[in-house]
Design a protein around this nucleic acid. Sequence first.
DNA 1: AGATTGATCTTGACGCCGTTCAGATAGGTG
DNA 2: CACCTATCTGAACGGCGTCAAGATCAATCT
Lengths: 211, 211
Amino acid sequence: MREAAAVEPRPYHHGDLRRALVEAARRILESEGPTALSLRAVAREAGVSPAAPYHHFKDKGELLDAVAHVGWDMLGESMNGAKERAADLGALMTEIGVSYVQFSQQHPALYRVMYDCSRDKDELPEGMQDNEDSAYCLVRETFRKVAGPEVPIVDIELATIAAWCAAHGLAEMSTFKQFDGLKIGLGGEEAFLRGVLGHLGMFQASKSIKV
Amino acid sequence: MREAAAVEPRPYHHGDLRRALVEAARRILESEGPTALSLRAVAREAGVSPAAPYHHFKDKGELLDAVAHVGWDMLGESMNGAKERAADLGALMTEIGVSYVQFSQQHPALYRVMYDCSRDKDELPEGMQDNEDSAYCLVRETFRKVAGPEVPIVDIELATIAAWCAAHGLAEMSTFKQFDGLKIGLGGEEAFLRGVLGHLGMFQASKSIKV
DNA sequence: AGATTGATCTTGACGCCGTTCAGATAGGTG
DNA sequence: CACCTATCTGAACGGCGTCAAGATCAATCT
């Protein structure tokens, strides 16, 4: 029976499990948070046995790496989208920063996995590596344009790192509930983000990259 | 036999286990890293059964909280020590920042536990809370003095948060090995830290707290 | 077509984890 | 002294990551 109902669902032994596992992991992350993300739970969610993932990933870490990879793609898109929202080049850095932190707030569990994967290996996250079209390059090239050609490249590099540190720090801390009062006083979450970013030199067009 | 040899070691049933457990945990953190830090391993290291810790801590999280508490005390001392190393008030913020990041580099596993405890609860770490003599107050009061009385308090607050975000981000990222080349080029680890911090507005005396 | 192959998945097991509970131990108090 | 209570142990539970052995099945070869 059922010769080839193959509309979409299970074309092979079980389907392409690799993708299914990554999506199951993301579903668990969104609905139950990082602590619920066990390999067995992912297999359960995908409807396979606990050992099945080992035919597609060396170990749990490699599955998480795949999840993180999706996350960095999403974050990269979000940051690139800032180009459309920025009024001019001067405002672009702020918009990128806001995009970054807002992404981390919309996907807190995913963001945590993204960074934990990096720290476990002491390696830069993919999105921060110096590949072409990486998010890192987007930030650095924005800095380069804002700063002009007379600024030494090492300063561009350091400013990019500094900006990323600040954005990452804010991403991890902005959810702490002790800031709720201040957020209300400033008029909401985004005003708070812009307020903090505004006090970091490089997120203000007028004074960015003073050597 | 041995009526009261109580010099230091085991005055009671097993000694004051609570402290012993926290110290055992710190020993494991330093020698084997955060992933090796299981409750059972801590009990083993302290020479007691796996269930013994439950008479002193509600669960594993509460033990980690105690470890983190020690860590924030240490970090607070380190930051306060910056006062002696700073040439003038203008340089103080930079020295505090350097102290912060250097602490995280000297105790990476401990620093990770310190922050993970906070994020698990969405609560500010102790050292960042607005208690008197907290590290947060040290930073904020430094800003207040540098900025002068005409700067609104909300900007002092935002600048303090921004500085902390940047320091935390740098603390977490400075160990990534992709920065090794840049560090060598700049003349070492500390030069790298000062380089990055120098590109953050609030760590430069001359331009800190521009409203 | 039928046999073979190799990738995919399951079953069952191992050791470790966090946690609980009944019972042993022993200091402090009457 | 006997009792009480805090402390600690031993054994157990379910869940975890991982692995080895066997079942299943698409694809390939003859």
